[in-house]
Amino acid sequence: MKMLKLRPSEILSMLMGDPQADRVVPPTGFTARLTLFSAGVMAFLAVFAMALSMASGRLAQRWGDELARSATLRISAPQEQRAAQTEAALRVLETTTGVASARALTSEEQRALLTPWFGPDVPVDSLPIPQLIEITEDDQGYDAAGLRLRLSAEVPGAVLDDHTRWRRPLVNAASKLRLLGWLSIALIFAAMAAMITLAANAALAANAQVIAVLRLVGARDTYIAQAFVRRFTLRALAGALAGMALAMLAVALLPSAQDQASFLTGLSFAGWTWLSPLIIPLIAAVVAFVATQAAARKTLKGLR
């Protein structure tokens, strides 16, 4: 498009502004406030969508990483066969390709796992609890179906608990959530572009006489467009800055994720990602610039 041919120096001089040029368009209090307000609201929403995307991204990654390479083998056999079956299972696992290591949990470890449910004083040893074997995969991973077949033949009491089964839908859901978040951001900016185009068109229509007079006295299109474009760009920038600041404050005030609740990671920014919302006002300004420029060019083309 023609407007993209603007040189950086022109954009700079536009943002620096020409106080004379600013005066040729009459101030319009109401549309100005509406544009500010809408840009602010959009930026506010965009910050939340961004926080949501980043949080679900972190969630998907964490679930993926933590659960990806481990599985559990549970041996529920009568007390007297348990040791023998554990031995057999470990042998099977050692000869399975894709299994990096397999280790039977000690009774202390098993007791630690159960403590939250039974309390520390319950004699766990006397209960018929199954033996757990922790399996760590190597990079290739193992064939779960094949392993199950072999186990069912050699260790009848073994149940392979492959975490993928419940992990995959969760990771999937988190990834979809992240995608939705980014989609929302895109839609928010599209809506902002539409809204600013409408506001700019209204301003251009309301100022038809101003434009005709400027044209008659020899103003070039760039000059006329600039007077409008600058105004809307700065309004969108200011509105979006305010909206972003409020939204970041709101995000900062959200209760932070506790370690115990890390399953539901906090809907917040982490570390350097606190800087990422800063791009929202910039995008808003660019969107406003392009939208107003297009609207102004279109209007100006209609008159000589």
Partner: peptide, 9 residues
Amino acid sequence: RDDVAMTRR
């Protein structure tokens, strides 16, 4: 269009 503007001057 710019030529026209210049002529108007």
